[in-house]
Amino acid sequence: MTHRPSRATLLFGLLAVAPLPAAAETGALVAQGCLGCHGPNGAGMGPVPALAGRDGAELRALMQAFRDGTRPATIMDRIARGYTEAEVAAAVEHFAGSR
């Protein structure tokens, strides 16, 4: 169970941080595209596996395997090949460590 901050602490947190670089923002948006099948916040949906809270290196390796065609897929091969390594890395960052 992760700690869920109240809206007030969240807002305070937001105001306290410095602007993130554009890559992180794009990564957040790439990750948003994944939610269209991987469920709210990447928690998984029916037969589609969860991404949230998983090890970043593991997710990157899975994406690489989809890209190489070494992992069986109905669709992730076509998806993984469409993103740059940097985009995948940034998106994976958003899932890794979240729960």
Binding site: T2, L14, P19, L20, A31, A52, S98, R99
Partner: peptide, 17 residues
């Protein structure tokens, strides 16, 4: 709000003003 959304929030809205 989940951690992911929180992170998206941080990234998208690192906006002091």
């Amino acid at each position: 709000m989940s951690a992911l959304t929180r992170r998206a929030a941080l990234a998208l809205l690192a906006a002091p003003a």
